[in-house]
Design a protein around this nucleic acid. Structure first.
Length: 248
DNA sequence: AAGAAACGCAACCGCGGAGGG
DNA sequence: ACCCTCCGCGGTTGCGTTTCT
């Protein structure tokens, strides 16, 4: 089954776009707008399939695209959103003005996944330490090591039979003894499993609604901070003030 | 200096959903 | 109700560049 390929290869250009093609596409869209990509390709005189034109425009030529490195704040937000949404790159990109889903996906696959793997290893080392060290450790989102939110999420996960991914990457995670270890040792010191699960569950719904809402990027970021503080207070009363300092 | 390995990123592929005829 | 086209998405590939040995 499935769709047939959108364009026959014989008469189409493939591979990298030339400066001339970029100009033709840009000029056409400036005049006619972004509609009917198949027509755009044909009418602009480009030997490209419509989807290729669309991708080129959305990921590279669009005037509002932000170039340059992902900032630490953006990285934090990506990790946060990925934790909630999984690989829904377009939704994540929607919360990062000027960034494309392709860019975020690439960034995740090349940079963040590696960081999280390292972070997981670090966490496994940490978990083997006495539990009072774990609960008193500082939060750090950017190194992916051990936020309070993550701790709560891990506990939530164990209680919900891995409904949610742990630590941002479901492909990399599997049910582990380490998670149970956290559950047995951390949760007993703070709140009941049910309390924390419930708290996180409602926070999750809250965040999901936020994602679907029209809250602007910077406001959304602040709300994320607010949300993190709530989760932090649920655990031990600490806050993420160090992150607040990085607000734009 | 040269080859190998790792990385970064643009581009392509194939699927599913929406909507029109 | 069905078929077809178009669009948008996530996954994957390929290749140029950078770093390592």
């Amino acid at each position: 089954m499935g769709r047939r390929p959108r364009c026959t290869k014989e008469e189409m250009n493939n591979g990298p776009w030339t400066a001339e093609e970029d100009k033709m596409l840009t000029d056409y869209i400036k005049i006619h707008g972004e509609r009917k990509w198949c027509n755009v390709a044909r009418k602009a005189g480009l030997k490209r399939c419509g989807n290729s034109c669309r991708l080129r425009w959305l990921n590279y030529l669009r005037p509002d695209i932000k170039r340059g490195n992902i900032s630490p704040a953006e990285e934090d937000l990506i990790i946060r959103l990925h934790r909630l949404l999984g690989n829904r790159w377009s939704l994540i990109a929607g919360r990062l003005p000027g960034r494309t889903d392709n860019e975020i996906k690439n960034y995740w696959n090349s940079v963040l996944r590696r960081k999280l793997i390292n972070g997981k290893q670090h966490m496994q080392n940490t978990i083997l330490r006495p539990s009072n060290e774990i609960t008193s450790s500082t939060t750090s989102v950017s190194n992916g090591a051990k936020t309070n939110a993550v701790t709560c999420k891990m506990i939530f996960e164990t209680s919900r039979t891995h409904e949610l991914e742990t630590f941002g990457s479901n492909a990399l995670e599997e049910p582990s003894k380490e998670v149970s270890f956290v559950n047995d040792n951390v949760i007993n010191e703070s709140k009941s499993k049910e309390d924390c699960s419930q708290n996180f569950s409602s926070s999750f719904n809250y965040m999901d609604e936020l994602l679907m809402s029209g809250v602007s990027g910077s406001d959304f970021w602040k709300l994320c901070m607010f949300y993190d503080n709530i989760v932090a207070r649920c655990n031990n009363g600490s806050t993420n003030d160090h992150l607040d300092k990085r607000l734009p």
